[in-house]
Amino acid sequence: MMGLEIGILGGIAVALLGIAVLLGAARLVLGPTVADRVVAADILTIITTAALVWLALVQDSAIVLDIALVFGALSFVGVVAIARALEKRS
């Protein structure tokens, strides 16, 4: 495995991304309503998309960019589906 040299700035940035994921996960667990959890999931998927793009850079493989794109598309459809279901049910 080559790569994975991210430097000091990169290290700080990865730590910040980790904190962001933890904070988002906290809102996902705490709720209190379904809408709050959906928002948290939405933000977490955007953070994950950004992290995947970053992973593409660290591993130096453009194929991960395609994974990020498909992941983003699927999670968008998921968020819309949950929101529509929530709206219909009420």
């Binding site: 991304l17 906290a26 809102r27």
Partner: peptide, 12 residues
């Protein structure tokens, strides 16, 4: 990364 972190902090 800072803005993503601030967004998550705002969520909380």
């Amino acid at each position: 990364a800072v803005f993503l972190c601030l967004a998550a902090l705002g969520m909380v």
